[in-house]
């Protein structure tokens, strides 16, 4: 295992570090954006992460849950999260105002293999809240634009009002150094100017893909994976260059509590980023 290379925490890894909510605002009806800063500067500096990694966030009294980082490591100091209100921890987070204190520990998980992805083309396929981890890797690629080849983004949401960071992605469309296609399943506004249809309907719009040189990334609701993976395979992208990040129940984030176990791996240690080969190789991943 890669345990030896992983950054070991000093002391008790289960104690969260105090952090403050710097900014929070709604992104959609049930998704909020959170910008967080550690109280202790040393902790902020020690928190070195890769896109695709996650952190455990505590609201003391409500509990603790895993959330993937949405900010890129190329913009250190502040951690950003996109969080959907779903359970007691997220419910409590939604009630908190700016300046409120929370607990954060991490970063955990394998993250995207940024070193291997350098120099390659990157194809990012996003469904709904799947934008949370993929925003991190996309912003990282853009911040280090010269290190990557062609960057393409396909982003689907249920309807315009549920397209998280809609403005950010409209702005991306204006950039000359990447390809970006947006779609909504249904337009309930009448003023949507982009595509209507599920995210897979965007694949024909992609300019030519060089499969051997492409890393294809996907994250979205569970139902989406099967269809998007089929498109990636159609494009002949090698199975070990197809990457996805998965969600599981987690109580520790460090391979102890067992909840995220799949076969012989723990999603928190060996994931949450998996390749399409992992999916074929191990049952129950998706």
């Amino acid at each position: 295992m890669n345990g030896e290379t992983r950054c070991r925490e000093e002391g008790n890894p289960f104690l969260p570090h105090p952090a403050r909510i710097v900014r929070t605002y709604p992104l959609t009806q049930d998704v909020k954006f959170f910008q967080i800063r550690f109280l202790n500067m040393d902790q902020a500096l020690a928190f070195k992460y890769k896109p695709g990694q996650f952190a455990m966030i505590s609201v003391l009294g409500a509990g603790e849950a895993p959330f993937c980082l949405s900010s890129p490591p190329s913009r250190p100091g502040l951690l950003e999260f996109c969080i959907r209100k779903a359970g007691s921890v997220t419910g409590a987070l939604f009630d908190l105002k700016e300046n409120a204190m929370i607990g954060v520990r991490g970063p955990y998980g394998n993250g995207f293999p940024i070193e291997q992805m350098a120099g390659r083309d990157i194809l990012i396929t996003i469904g709904g809240l799947g934008v949370a981890p993929l925003r991190s890797v996309l912003l990282y690629c853009l911040d280090n634009r010269d290190q990557f080849g062609k960057v393409s983004v396909l982003y689907g949401a249920k309807k315009p009002s549920e397209m998280i960071f809609r403005e950010e992605y409209f702005a991306l469309k204006e950039r000359g150094d990447l390809e970006c296609h947006l779609a909504v399943d249904a337009d309930d506004t009448g003023s949507w100017t982009e595509n209507v249809g599920v995210v897979t309907t965007l694949f024909p719009k992609l300019s030519k893909v060089n499969p051997e040189n492409t890393y294809a990334l996907v994250c979205g609701p569970p139902v989406m994976y099967k269809f998007v993976l089929r498109e990636f395979v159609k494009l002949s992208i090698p199975k070990n260059q197809i990457l996805m990040t998965l969600e599981r129940r987690m109580k520790c984030g460090v391979g102890k509590c067992g909840h995220c176990a799949i076969d012989y791996i723990y999603t928190c240690l060996d994931g949450p980023v998996f390749t399409y080969w992992d999916v074929l190789h191990m049952r129950e991943l998706i």
Binding site: A65, S88, E247, R249, H259
Partner: peptide, 19 residues
């Protein structure tokens, strides 16, 4: 102490239960 045979073991917030 918990068990993977219990109903909520693989359930995530929002109700999706992987097992």
């Amino acid at each position: 102490w918990d068990s993977c045979t219990l109903v909520e073991y693989s359930e995530v917030a929002g109700g999706e239960n992987f097992r």
